[in-house]
């Protein structure tokens, strides 16, 4: 134990409810913090604005995936039926685009659904070892508690001042997140 050096990775503060969290988020934003987050068991309406966050860029990505899926499917069907191995079926044209619609549509949907999930997962920055998990109290964030976390990566983060600031805007149980480094 003596070898491990402990450092502070950030701090968290608890707030009483969604309304309090929203107001506190505005104050943290106005104080100039960037690397902070508001944790709640369910999404809170208006939080993006309160935190000064931009909206998600997922929409255009999914649109692109739908376009690629659909056009790729049509291209595949054209190449397979009208170029690579032509088979006359019921005297229909080799490129029967009307009949190719269902598969085109299905693959457009499939690609966009895949992109919606993969894109979302890559944007939410998955980390199994995030500093907030060092707090025992934080476990309640997925139950009924509301937290603001400020990480030490933030340029204006200071262990003491940030904790005092969080307390001053109504945060309870302000806690430093101690990480043990080897």
């Amino acid at each position: 134990m003596s070898k491990t050096k402990s450092r502070t990775a950030g701090c968290i503060a608890e707030f009483a409810g969604p309304g309090e969290l929203l107001k506190a988020a505005e104050k943290v934003r106005d104080a100039g913090y960037k690397d902070f987050d508001c944790h709640s068991p369910f999404p809170i309406h208006g939080m993006d604005e309160a935190m000064g966050e931009k909206g998600s860029m997922l929409g255009p990505l999914v649109g692109l995936a739908a376009f690629l899926g659909g056009s790729g499917a049509l291209l595949m069907q054209w190449w397979m039926s009208a170029v690579d191995y032509k088979v006359v079926i019921a005297g229909k044209p080799f490129f029967s685009y009307q009949a190719f619609f269902p598969v085109t549509f299905s693959l457009a949907v499939l690609f966009s659904a895949g992109m919606a999930v993969v894109g979302m997962l890559s944007m939410i920055k998955l980390r199994f070892h995030h500093p907030v998990f060092y707090s025992e109290r934080f476990k309640k964030a997925s139950d009924d508690m509301f937290f603001i976390s400020v990480l030490s990566d933030d340029p204006i983060f200071s262990e003491e001042k940030t904790q005092l600031f969080l307390e001053s805007i109504g945060g309870a149980y302000v806690e430093a997140l101690r990480v043990d480094d080897e």
Binding site: D37, H39, I44, S56, V62, S112, M120, M123, I124
Partner: peptide
């Protein structure tokens, strides 16, 4: 998947959910 319930996750999550709903509707 390391879900933390932070708004920086919720905002993407909510949009993804909405998009999936939109994608599933024609299905």
């Amino acid at each position: 998947l390391g879900w933390r319930g932070g708004n920086k996750q919720w905002k993407h999550y909510e949009l993804a959910y909405l998009l999936l709903a939109g994608i599933s509707t024609p299905l």
